[in-house]
């Protein structure tokens, strides 16, 4: 790792090349060694601190890691006959989780494409406001979904809308950054061509920029959809509808009812795998243009 970790400058035409090279190498090794030692120190002390603040210790918990999964599997096998029924029962909430992810990805992508165009040099409607829109995207990206979701639940009173707005907010910031990188590579000649015939800003973006960037937008949007499905399940667990909420309820029934938990795990896992597969298939096609 030493070769890359720390910069080494080569002296201009040294009298003794070998000695200066060795000196350089030694210094580089020293720096990388120090960096690695610092990292190791941070990691070990961090581990001990986290272990200390945890309710159960790491070494005590390690042998118990498989207790819960094996209990879960045992119960699921024992009550395998119940599973299809559970699948049917929890399918609507699974659909809600997927809908939250899809709607928030769509809303986020639409907002992100507008705000990213406003924040790209050469495309911006108001070039003076580019730094402002960039800051807005940074802040939107930095807010974790759970923060907005919990505050909105208080105001809107539960339901999928709070989760949808929360995820869409974060998605706008995250996609906005990626989209504006795509925008920077867009060819400006079509934009100028349209501008010369007196088109409005919206027309220029819609007809000159969007066709160029659409494949990349779609590809990033699909990737975000994968992430948002997971986010929407987690938000449900913290308290806002969908399959996550059912999962928390099923967990609270405790021992003897773990077949429901197993059914939800299977549903969630299958959905994530299927969406990942479909999305990576289409992303490959979009990016490679096959």
């Amino acid at each position: 790792m030493s070769d890359v970790a720390i910069s080494g400058r080569t002296a201009p035409q040294p009298p003794d090349l070998r000695a200066s090279y060795l000196r350089d190498l030694q210094r580089r090794r020293l720096y990388s060694g120090l960096l690695l030692a610092l990292f190791a120190l941070l990691f070990v002390s961090g581990f001990m601190l986290a272990d200390d603040r945890n309710a159960g210790g790491f070494w005590d918990g390690l042998p118990k890691v498989f207790d819960f999964p094996s209990e879960l599997v045992a119960e699921a096998v024992e009550k395998a006959a119940n599973l299809p029924g559970h699948f049917v029962r929890y399918f609507p909430s699974l659909l809600e989780t997927i809908n939250i992810a899809a709607a928030s990805t769509l809303v986020g992508a639409i907002l992100a494409s507008v705000i990213s165009m406003l924040a790209t040099r050469g495309l911006a409607r108001w070039p003076a406001l580019i730094p402002l829109f960039r800051r807005i995207m940074d802040i939107m990206r930095a807010v974790p979904e759970v923060v907005i979701a919990l505050v909105l639940i208080f105001v809107l009173g539960g339901g999928p809308v709070a989760a949808m707005i929360a995820i869409a907010f974060h998605t706008t910031g995250a996609l906005g950054k990626l989209f504006s990188e795509v925008n920077e590579n867009a060819d400006l000649r079509p934009v100028e061509g349209l501008a010369s015939v007196g088109s409005t800003w919206t027309q220029r973006m819609w007809f000159a920029v969007l066709p160029q960037v659409a494949p990349n937008y779609l590809s990033y949007g699909l990737m975000r959809f994968e992430i948002n499905i997971r986010a929407s399940a987690i938000l449900g667990f913290v308290g806002s509808g969908g399959i996550g909420y059912d999962l928390r309820n099923a967990m609270s029934w405790g021992k003897g009812r773990y077949d429901e938990v197993a059914a939800i795990f299977i549903l969630l896992l299958t959905t994530i795998v299927i969406v990942d597969q479909i999305s990576s298939h289409y992303r490959n096609r979009l990016v490679r243009g096959v």
Partner: peptide, 28 residues
């Protein structure tokens, strides 16, 4: 690798908090 990635962070969190109890180590 696919399995570790596919079983979502939420499911890992639930399984691990059974073994390690609540706290930062479980999250890590």
């Amino acid at each position: 690798f696919d399995f570790l990635r596919g079983v979502d962070g939420l499911i890992w969190t639930i399984i691990l908090s059974r073994a390690f109890g609540p706290g930062p180590m479980t999250g890590a």
